[in-house]
Amino acid sequence: MSEVILPGSGAGRRLLANTGFLLGALIVGAVLIVAILAPWISPHDPFAIDLTRRLVPPVFMEGGTPLNLLGTDQLGRDYLSRLIYGARISMVIGISTVIVSGLIGTTIGVLGGFYGGRVDDAVMFAITARLSIPVVLVALAVAGLMGTSFLLVILILGLLLWDRFAVVARSTTMQLRNLDYVSAAWCAGSSHSSVLLKEILPNIATHLAVVATLEMALAILLEAALSFLGLGVPAPLPSWGLMISEAKEYMFFTPWVILVPGIALFVLVLGVNLLGDALRDMLGTDLNR
């Protein structure tokens, strides 16, 4: 457990890490609560179309009404309600993708780092091959051929984004492999699986948590990009990327239509990244290198 090093590089840095952590936790926590409580807090049905009230501006702009706090979209659907339900999509995609890719990447990485030799060569090769594949393009191609669905987006992203988990799991496992407490477990007669699950995995978990935040942010951005290009989450689901895509036609006349979902997306991803950065600073490791 000597891996956990507290930040010792000055009070300023620690404070920065803490404000970053607080801000990140606040943003992610708020979005999570909004996503969970969506049916109870959204003022309108996010799918209810009202063609007589299209593109009503938000309440703080001229012509806005308190009835639709963030205005309505091109089909007269309440923007705030769609935004609230959209938080569900982003959070579910982000978390599920991280679970799928985390399972794949951690398994591969731990095996490579633990056994070394041929196994590690194969793992390194898989990582290299995976990195050479253009993610967005392949995701779009698969979605184009198989049709779009919510589950498919999670599967595609999960199967593509395991590389960083594998890299970090591999290198951290290598560092632990020859430490005394692992040798002690061997001497005590532990089996392979027991050493891997009870000695290695708990001690690399914090590093994997940092990767998880980075990958979650990436998955949320990628889902939005896929939906924006029409090959992610299918309409009429209120994915933030899809909302930007549908509003695109009107952005030259009413720019707020792309600002609202775009800012939501930006703030959520910023929050997740802030959490990850604060976590990394507390660990005192630099995964970017």
Partner: peptide
Amino acid sequence: ALIGQAMPSFWLGLILMV
């Protein structure tokens, strides 16, 4: 750097267009 990381590229593109 943090802002750059969180910016959805397609959205930034649309903002610049406007």
